[in-house]
Design a binder for these strands. Structure first.
Lengths: 160, 160
DNA sequence: GCAAGATGTTTCGCGTGCGAAATATCGATG
DNA sequence: CATCGATATTTCGCACGCGAAACATCTTGC
């Protein structure tokens, strides 16, 4: 809503530093996921999908897209390649024939069990070294921040 | 370093939430950059490159890669397309003929001036709504976290 | 029951993004 | 000065990742 005022320089510096840190953490987390996935001859996104399906069972393609925060068209491609490798099956739903349910195959389950290590182990360890208070603060502030951004995005789109 | 112990469930939940928030913020920041870039018929990375070159002048391809945290091979592609559009020039360095310096063209500069809005305006606004204390805390904790991860990555790579 | 719109998925074209191998040049060592 | 290892960039093949358009199926209004 209220259009952002020009901010003071030191705030800008802090913002830059915060964004820098977030970018770094994100990049690193992705790199690590990829590295873990490689041990099972998977790509990062594929490992994510396998783990999700292992934990919560079949999902429609759209539900899966929501989970991993990607567009349907992206997930279609990922599932194509996983199906080709025999990791998942596409099962047309009988109730609504538009929807496709994605199901882990035996091979897929085997792989999921094999890579039991959580991809985020390193982050967990790093976070664990923070004090309990710091953890709580971090979560609180990040959540608040995410919520604000979400609101702005949601009802924004009016001003340049 | 000490191998990570299995962590308690509530810590795991907090970690998941924190990672979730970071993922969200990152994704959103990227989406916003893209949207801003679109106004100038640029892609997200291209806008980033244009803005960097505007602010600090010519850079070698490697220096540019470092700045935007991407591999050289990725940046080669980005610069290829930008050169095709007449936004930048490749200038072979005379001192060291291996290096290529990337230089904004007049057209590139014009575009950079045109998109004067900071892509991160929305984040700045969101962060600005946090209290000063929260901002400081967030920065402190994120920095600490990034540093820890960095250390782990740096001297890790020993255990499975 | 059927036309019109809504919803779920795929297709297409394009732009990243990466790692490994190729290429070009530099610098040091003999 | 020939060669060998280091450094800068490009090429290649592949896997995302997106938005727009196409397609299939469902639902609603009539």
């Amino acid at each position: 809503m209220s259009r952002p005022e020009p901010l003071s320089p030191e705030v800008n510096a802090a913002v830059d530093a915060i964004l820098e840190a977030i970018l770094y953490l994100y990049t690193e987390s992705r790199r690590i996921t990829k590295e873990v996935a490689k041990r099972a001859s998977l790509t990062g996104p594929q490992l994510t999908v396998v783990k999700i399906l292992e934990q919560i069972g079949d999902l429609s393609l759209s539900e899966l897209s929501d989970r991993i925060r990607a567009q349907n068209s992206t997930v279609t491609g990922i599932i194509d390649r996983m199906e080709r490798e025999g990791l998942v099956d596409r099962v047309r739903s009988t109730e609504d024939r538009r929807v496709v349910r994605i199901r882990l195959t035996k091979k897929g389950f085997a792989l999921a069990r094999e890579v039991s290590v959580e991809p985020m182990e390193m982050f967990r360890a790093a976070l664990d070294e923070l004090s309990g208070i710091e953890q709580r603060d971090l979560l609180t502030i990040l959540t608040k921040l995410a919520k604000r951004v979400q609101m702005m995005v949601h009802d924004g789109r009016k001003e340049t």
